[in-house]
Amino acid sequence: MHHTRRVAFGIALGVSAAMAATAAPAQTPQGPDEIPTERVHSDISTREIAIKSNFTGIEIVIFGAVDYAPPDPKAPPYDVIMVIRGPTQDVVARRKERFAGIWLNGSSKVFHDIPGFYAVLSSRPLRAIAPEETLNELKVGFTALDLGPDDHSSVSDDLFRQAVIRNKEERLLFQYLDNAVSFIGRSLFRGTVDMPVNVPIGVYTAEVLLFQDGKLLSKDESTLNVQKVGFERGVYILAFRHPVIYGLLAVAIALLMGLGAWALFRRD
């Protein structure tokens, strides 16, 4: 009994060690003799956001620290970019056209897999941290979002693309926050972002990228789950998964309340 358990434990250790080896970022080779390079670790102030009846939006804090920072006072400062991505959805952008004096939806374009929430926080303006190609490669910033084939031949396509970004920005679902990441000392940092009341539900990822001198040193990622809870969750699940029961319930409540009102205020 004891013996088998120890074997199982040993296997588990071996597996996790192997996983750690494959998961280790390529840019931080850690040979026995080498001086370890910087590594970034991060986490979010909350792993779960519960949408309840009093939900009006929430501020989340993403914090982290730089490990193996060499004690070199002349080294250039670190820069941090944080990218928070919400669950993706297909979005249709429509252009209003005037017809007989009335503005109605005319031509449209569908964009697939657009993040429902997308925020980029940085310790300095993005361009000052790294060149554009690096940022695009890392999919940082609105221009790096995959908004369909980039054929610059069609002007209207570009207008639709800008419209998606503009609309999302207005609803605070896309945010660019320069200087939203602040360092506490040399290797500790934090960034805050406001999630609005209309945040889509689902799993979010918060990617933290550590830069120095325009080069990516290390990155880390954590996840955040936005869920409706309690009554709101029950209502939502019932409405979308059991719509017949939901409809019957809606009708029954209204019928009973109408009946109750009549019984309460009857004058005969």
Binding site: Q89, D90, V91, V92, A93, R94, R95, K96, R98, G101, I102, W103, N105, V110, L159, F160, A163, V164, R166, N167, K168
Partner: peptide, 15 residues
């Protein structure tokens, strides 16, 4: 609301 030129001609919605 229908005849005044909207401030943004574009709107977005889930598919």
């Amino acid at each position: 609301g229908l005849v005044i030129t909207p401030s943004d001609l574009y709107t977005i919605a889930p598919v």
